[in-house]
């Protein structure tokens, strides 16, 4: 930007789009906000990063006990603990990112009301620390895979794409909910309930193959279903996801577009109503 260029502030007429080039100019801020969240989370915590394992491991224990031992739920031909750990890992990545993105504006309200920055930097920065948790869990997973001799196929190279999918989904839904939460703190309570229900509506503790064939397409409307099927295929070499995964991908895309639209529309009034 040349120093002589005017920067204007005038009322928005019509629809607004997010200025991604500006977000790129503010990449250092995004990085510092993400770094802050990581540092703050693990400061003065005796077990530090090991806490990233808490949620997946707790899920592993409970679900193995209830769904595997008691209910005898099938697990697509891989050991149930591995099956559920992959499910929990990606579920945690998604739900954690979603919660963080939803809270991001309100949590940074002093920034929103006191300085200018592209507002989308806040939700963007808030989902990044989840990748640290993810990598800790992936290390544990790699150990378990090595111990049990389960080797993933060459499709493991697609892992970054699956991670991107989970983060993108969390970000997209988070953008919408963050916008709502600026105005209505109810969003927080609604989110807690929603995440709880969503967990059981997704194939975390059970395989999506349990869903009757004629319902698979409808079931894939839950984008997490396609996400988890893909994650298991990539990491555990289960059956490759069938055609309904495209529905999940499309829904993810739609949610992302919706989130960006809603956020862009609300963005200019955040400082007034937060």
């Amino acid at each position: 930007m040349s120093p002589s260029a005017w920067v204007e502030n005038r009322p928005t007429a019509g629809r607004r789009a997010l200025d991604w080039r500006e977000v790129w100019r503010y990449r250092e801020l995004v990085a510092f906000l993400a770094l802050r969240d990581i540092r703050v989370r693990y400061k003065q915590a005796a077990f530090g990063m090991l806490w990233a394992l808490a949620q997946p491991l707790a899920g592993l224990l409970v679900f193995t006990l209830v769904f595997d031992r008691l209910a005898g739920v099938p697990s697509d031909g891989v050991p149930y603990p591995l099956f559920v750990l992959v499910g929990m890992t990606f579920w945690t990545l998604f739900s954690g990112g979603l919660s963080a993105a939803t809270a991001s504006l309100v949590a940074n309200s002093s920034l929103v009301t006191k300085v200018y920055f592209p507002r989308v930097a806040a939700p963007l920065a808030s989902v990044l620390p989840r990748l640290v948790d993810l990598s800790v869990t992936l290390v544990l997973l790699a150990l378990l895979l090595a111990v049990t001799g389960t080797l993933p196929g060459p499709q493991v190279l697609l892992l970054p794409l699956v991670v991107l999918w989970a983060v993108g989904l969390a970000f997209g839904v988070g953008l919408t909910l963050a916008t709502v939460q600026v105005r209505f703190r109810d969003a927080h309570h609604a989110l807690t309930l929603m995440v709880q229900l969503w967990l059981y509506a997704s194939p975390v503790a059970y395989p999506s193959s349990l869903v009757p064939a004629e319902w698979r397409w409808a079931y894939a409307l839950n984008p997490v279903a396609g996400l988890l099927d893909s994650a298991r295929w990539v990491l555990l070499d289960t059956r490759p996801p069938a055609a309904p995964v495209l529905v999940s991908l499309a829904v993810t895309g739609l949610l992302l577009v919706l989130g960006v639209r809603v956020f862009a529309a609300g963005e200019r009034r955040f400082a007034d109503v937060i």
Binding site: P3, E8, N9, R10, P11, Y116
Partner: peptide, 20 residues
């Protein structure tokens, strides 16, 4: 806040030149 672009004006326009 309007000059800093933290909030948007209801009518009118404000302009700044350079980094704020």
């Amino acid at each position: 806040k309007v000059l800093a672009r933290i909030t948007e004006p209801t009518v009118g326009v404000s302009r700044t030149r350079g980094a704020v």
